[in-house]
């Protein structure tokens, strides 16, 4: 069955469809001409240089990075205790609480963005950066709860109980026993939350203002008016980041986590 010719052909075509476009983008990034062309004309790094000299791209890259790191850290600080509480015995309302933490994933992105805009920027008069940060904390919480939750499910809590029965306080047992045992889950959760915050478009779209925007948003407005290999060069840089993140996830949680 597995070696059926038609099946193999379908698989090859699908993978060409999945990988081809990104490879094409990669190739166009090294164009030496002024316009997008494939196959690329000549070979140069001029578009990479252009990206690094662009104030807009560099500023928004910095903002995206800061927001993604800070939002993920905040979500970890409030998410780890919650995931820990959720992984312990059943108690009333556990399912409801779990669903509350997962709910940001269910709300359509643009609705999230609009709601954040109305509440944080209009109603509470928060600054754009702070609003963006709060919005992204909400967006990444589900990833933290899920990934850390699944690492806690695999943890044998009897080792924690052993520490407590030997005289450690609950808090000490958590930091000395539980946390070190879920480190790989925490790292993977960080990576997944980071990339999902970094790549977010629909919510960030509503939370930009004078001088504050994220990289995907500035890329979007750039491609609406320009058609040159600068975006290809930026794409290559972002894809390199994705490869690095995937590598870290594979080394910690394992990519097979995605199929669960």
């Amino acid at each position: 069955m597995k070696n059926n010719k038609i099946l193999v052909l379908v698989v090859i075509l699908v993978y060409v469809f999945l990988c081809g476009p990104l490879l094409i983008i990669g190739a166009t990034a090294f164009n030496s001409g002024n316009i997008m062309s494939f196959p690329p004309k000549g070979f140069s790094f001029r578009w990479f240089a252009m990206v690094f000299q662009s104030e807009t791209f560099m500023t928004t890259l910095g903002i995206s990075f800061q927001v993604a790191v800070l939002a993920t850290l905040i979500a970890l600080i409030i998410g780890i205790p919650a995931a820990y509480a959720l992984s312990r015995k059943n108690y009333r309302g556990k399912n409801i609480v779990q669903n509350i933490f997962i709910s940001p994933i269910i709300v359509p992105g643009v609705v999230l963005g609009f709601a954040f805009f109305r509440f944080l920027i209009i109603k509470l008069q928060f600054g754009v950066f702070l609003s963006l940060l709060i919005g992204h904390v909400i967006i990444v919480i589900p990833y933290i709860i899920r990934v850390i939750g699944s690492s806690l499910d695999n943890l044998d809590f009897s080792i924690e109980e052993a520490a407590v029965s030997l005289g450690a306080t609950k808090l000490r047992a958590f930091f000395l026993i539980v946390l070190p045992n879920i480190t790989s889950g925490v790292i993977a959760a960080f990576m997944l939350a980071f990339i999902n915050s970094f790549n977010n478009v629909p919510a960030s779209l509503f939370l930009t203002g004078p001088g504050v925007s994220t990289l995907p948003i500035s890329m979007m407005s750039y491609v609406e008016y320009n058609y040159d290999p600068a975006i290809s060069a930026l794409s290559v840089i972002l894809m390199a980041m994705t490869v690095l993140i995937m590598f870290i996830i594979e080394k910690t949680l394992g990519l097979s986590h995605f199929t669960k």
């Binding site: 990339i195 930026l234 994705t242």
Partner: peptide, 8 residues
Amino acid sequence: PQLTDSVV
């Protein structure tokens, strides 16, 4: 591709 930016 799943982890690559949707703009890209």
